[in-house]
């Protein structure tokens, strides 16, 4: 396998992982390595931006304030003026983590660092990461609805009519499923397309696809955060029935 592999698919390694064994648990090492990098970048930038806070912002503080206002607007639009504040950290961290992950996967030549198995890439191209984020989103909106409306939250399952009960229950499963697979599929597919193109034509031709990849990466981060906020807002408002792509 290791002999044949470089000949056949050269750089394409799909579904190969760097396994770490921690107390009988199997972990995907390459995902954690890049996610630690992403987390480190986020923490470092946040630290630098808030180290010397001034009323009239400049430089990094200005940039991060712009990011924060963007996140606040996103949460405000989806959740509503009254309730959005406690959810800003969750929605914002979703957006920032996914965005920086995606762009790090697209911009940083991780593949120059060789691992014994698998390869470094965006953490979001591993199904574990996206499912984790999607399940956290599910928990978040359940918690939001339950803490806001108590047991009345479950009335949403029979809301237009009780006939829709199965569909409403199904929705709770399709939401995390679609969230996780959308992100995972987009990022993985983008990296595969770039890898295949690089394999076929190493120079210049992959560049437009790479630029497109940057665009879709940013859009995916925005979509994930917006949908998470929309689900939370829906659970809090309790009108129900609104389906978001």
């Amino acid at each position: 396998m290791l002999m044949i592999h470089p000949l056949v698919l050269a750089e394409l390694e799909v579904g190969q992982h760097l396994y770490w064994q921690v107390g009988g648990l199997k972990l995907h090492g390459q995902v954690f390595l890049t996610s630690w990098f992403v987390i480190g970048v986020l923490l470092l930038v946040s630290f630098l931006a808030t180290r010397n806070i001034q009323r009239i912002p400049s430089g990094l503080q200005n940039f991060m304030e712009y990011a924060l206002e963007f996140i606040r607007d996103l949460a405000k639009n989806q959740i509503g003026e009254k309730e959005y504040r406690p959810w800003v950290p969750f929605v914002g961290t979703l957006f920032l983590f996914i965005f920086v992950s995606n762009w790090s996967g697209a911009l940083i030549p991780w593949k120059l660092i060789h691992l014994p198995a698998g390869e470094l890439a965006a953490p979001t191209n591993d199904i574990n990461t996206t499912v984790a984020l999607a399940l956290l989103t599910s928990l978040a909106y359940f918690y939001a609805g339950f803490s806001k409306r108590g047991l009345a939250y479950f009335a949403k399952y029979i809301e237009p009519t009780p006939i829709l009960l199965p569909i409403n229950i199904l929705e709770d499963f399709t939401k995390p499923l679609s969230l996780s697979f959308r992100l995972f599929g987009n990022i993985l597919a983008d990296e595969l397309v770039v890898a295949v193109l690089v394999l076929l034509v190493p120079l210049f031709v992959p560049l437009p696809v790479m630029v497109l990849g940057l665009f879709t990466s940013a859009i995916q981060a925005l979509i994930f955060a917006t949908l998470a906020a929309a689900y939370i807002g829906e659970a809090i408002e309790g009108h129900g029935g609104e389906e978001h792509g």
Binding site: K26, F32, A132, L133, L135
Partner: peptide, 13 residues
């Protein structure tokens, strides 16, 4: 390949 990466990633997040 879903494994312990999932819960740990959630905790990390």
């Amino acid at each position: 390949d879903l494994d312990a990466t999932l819960p740990l990633m959630a905790v990390q997040f």
